[in-house]
């Protein structure tokens, strides 16, 4: 049995690896919660599909490896098997993985197109804000309530920092830019990530299934303060979102003396729905 130590050693670590994956979700070593967007759910589903395929391959190859090692240490007296290989096996183990890989590639194309190809964006995606990354914060520009977000800043635009509010339950898009170096807009719970590239504006859409606060982080090295580009995405009801914009407007227009008047009637009047 002693001479089986090493085959066991090489079979033991894959078991640990698998155990760690099995217990990971319950230990909270897993996704930061289930995907909070419909789009994110599709990514998760793909992930789990690939995880199954990969796990089967991982187990299969390691069982095979363990087996040949196990048999190999017993092989003391006779000569090793004099074989240069097998044409049939080569064909088999080329075609089988090729098929599986081709399947994975084609199967996911659709999700990718939805995410990045403009003509495949979901119906009714509304540009809601312009997000401009900068060392080391996210600057956010909304159009005034009821107005359309223009590509160039307008005098009545509203500004915040590190705090992006969106209405939940429908796809919205942001215009992602950067003022200085590259950054990357990453909201783990929504499974979106997109680099902000100097000199370019990139439309990024996402949806949120539930109201809530989601962490916004930067995923592209942008300097010493990269780690602290912390922001949040707040998903709220349509009316709450409108209210938020109005408050923002009120604050921004507040000259320190007189508050501009606003009434609930105006909210109803300016639905953001038709700002497309």
């Amino acid at each position: 049995m002693v001479n089986k130590f090493w085959p066991l050693f090489f079979m033991f670590w894959p078991i640990l690896a698998i155990v760690s994956f099995v217990i990971a979700p319950s230990m909270d070593w897993w996704f930061p919660g289930p995907a909070m967007s419909k789009f994110g759910e599709q990514i998760d589903n793909l992930f789990y599909l690939i995880l199954v395929i990969v796990a089967v391959t991982f187990v299969g190859t390691h069982v095979a490896l363990g087996y040949v090692l196990w048999r190999g240490v017993d092989n003391r007296d006779t000569k090793a098997w004099f074989s240069h290989g097998s044409h049939n096996l080569e064909v088999l183990w080329s075609i089988a993985p090729a098929g599986i890989l081709m399947f994975i590639s084609l199967y996911q194309l659709d999700v990718w197109m939805q995410f990045r190809v403009k003509s495949h964006f979901p119906e009714g995606t509304t540009p809601i804000a312009e997000v401009t990354a900068r060392q080391f914060e996210w600057r956010i520009r909304y159009a005034a309530p009821g107005k359309k977000l223009m590509t160039t800043p307008q005098p009545d635009d509203l500004y915040t920092v590190n705090d992006l509010h969106v209405p939940f339950g429908r796809p919205v898009s942001i215009r992602l830019r950067t003022m200085d170096v590259q950054h990357s807009f990453f909201v783990p719970e929504l499974r979106v990530k997109q680099d902000a590239v100097p000199g370019t504006v990139i439309p990024v859409w996402f949806d949120t299934m539930r109201p809530g606060e989601y962490d916004l982080t930067c995923a592209e090295l942008c300097g010493w303060g990269h780690y602290k580009m912390r922001g949040r995405v707040v998903a709220e009801k349509e009316s709450g979102f409108q209210q938020y914009l109005l408050t923002l407007q009120a604050e921004q227009n507040f000259d320190g003396v007189t508050r501009p008047e606003h009434s609930g009637a105006q909210i109803a009047e300016y639905g953001i729905e038709d700002s497309q």
Partner: peptide, 15 residues
């Protein structure tokens, strides 16, 4: 393979 799958890489990239 996870990362080669573009949609999954959206999440995994730079993690």
């Amino acid at each position: 393979i996870f990362m080669a799958a573009v949609p999954v890489d959206i999440y995994f990239h730079d993690t």
